[in-house]
Design a protein around this nucleic acid. Structure first.
Lengths: 155, 155
DNA sequence: CCATTCCTGACCTTTTTAGTCAAGAATGGG
DNA sequence: CCCATTCTTGACTAAAAAGGTCAGGAATGG
C-alpha cells in the first residue's frame, strides 16, 4: 500500500498554502520551488484542488493560489479525495463486479476486512487538519492518538 | 489507496486453506477453481506464501498445499507482508531519499502523518486472524471494533 | 516408472503513475 | 488600452507496477 506522488505533493502544497493563509496568493511556480515539485505537475495538482473547492485561484500579475478556507477546516481526507477521487477503493467492485461467482457476495468472509480498513483510513485522514500539521511541534499531529493505543497488537 | 490482486487472492487462498486445516492438502489447481483465481497466478502466490512459512507444500500425487499453522495464529498482516514485501511503504524513502532538500527531514510536518497511517493499517491487519474471518458470522470480524468507534470524525 | 504436483524463472500485456508540453484565455498594473 | 503575468485545458509520453502467462524441470508416491 502506498501514498502516490499526487497525494504527497498535494499535501505539501496545502501545508505551504496554509502557512501563508491570509497573506498574498502564491503563484504555482513559486509553490513548485518551495515544495520541490515539478512546476508543470504542480499546476495539474492545483487544478484538482481548485475543482474540489479547496483552493482559490487569481489570474493576472500578483495572482496565484490561496486556501479557500482556514487551515483548521481542511482535512487530509479532503485533499486525498480531491486528487485521487476517493480515499480507498471499493475492493469488491474491482475484482468481482457483476460476476456470478463473486467471492464478495452473500457469504463472503473477506469483504468486511477491506471495508473496515477503508473506514479506518478514511477516519484517520478526516481527523488530521492542515492546522494540526502546522502545529505538530506542539504534538497535536505527531503523537499517536489515544484510540490507536487501545488496539491490541495481533498474535 | 488500493488492495492489489495478489493481496486479495492470497487472502482468499489462505481462508480456503484455513477452512480445510487438518484435512488433506489442496492442489494449486483445485484452489484456483474454488477461489476463482487464474491457475498459473495461484502458483506464483503460493510460492510466496510458502517462502514466508505460511503454507507447506507436498509434491507427488495426493500432494498440494496446507496451512503451516492453525488459523488463529495467522494474521492478515503476515499474508500481506508475504505477497507484497511490506504492509505500508516508507514514504520518505520514496520521494526524498538522500536529497538535501528533502521535505521529510528535521522540521518536516507531513512525515508523521504517513508514518502513523502505516502504523494504523499494520495494527489493524495484525488484529485480524484467519480464524476470525472464518467465524465472521458470529460477528468477530465483520463488526467495527470498539477502538475504531472512539475516533472522533474529522471537521 | 510414470502420472501428479510442485518449482523456477523468464516473459508478456495492460493499467497506472508521473510527468511534459503547447496553445489559449483572463487579469490587472502601468 | 496594452502586455507581462498567471492560470486553464487537454493532449501527449515515458517509465513503472500490476496482473497474468508459459515452458521446462524436479520431486514424490502409488
Amino acid at each position: 500500500m502506498r501514498i502516490t506522488s499526487s497525494i504527497e505533493y498535494a499535501t505539501r502544497l496545502m501545508v505551504t498554502l496554509a502557512a501563508e493563509h491570509g497573506k498574498a496568493p502564491l503563484p504555482a511556480e513559486r509553490l513548485a520551488e518551495i515544495d520541490n515539485v515539478p512546476a508543470d505537475f504542480v499546476s495539474q495538482i492545483l487544478v484538482k484542488l481548485r475543482r474540489a473547492g479547496l483552493v482559490t485561484s487569481h489570474r493576472g500579475s500578483a495572482g496565484g493560489y490561496s486556501l479557500s478556507r482556514p487551515p483548521r477546516e481542511v482535512t487530509i481526507e479532503q485533499v486525498v479525495r480531491a486528487v485521487d477521487g476517493s480515499v480507498f477503493e471499493e475492493v469488491c467492485e474491482r475484482y468481482d463486479a457483476g460476476s456470478k461467482d463473486c467471492r464478495h457476495q452473500g457469504q463472503c468472509a473477506i469483504s468486511p476486512v477491506w471495508t473496515k480498513l477503508g473506514e479506518i483510513v478514511t477516519r484517520y485522514f478526516e481527523s488530521v487538519t492542515l492546522a494540526a500539521i502546522l502545529e505538530q511541534k506542539a504534538g497535536s499531529c505527531g503523537a499517536v492518538p489515544a484510540w490507536l493505543e487501545k488496539l491490541a497488537p495481533g498474535k
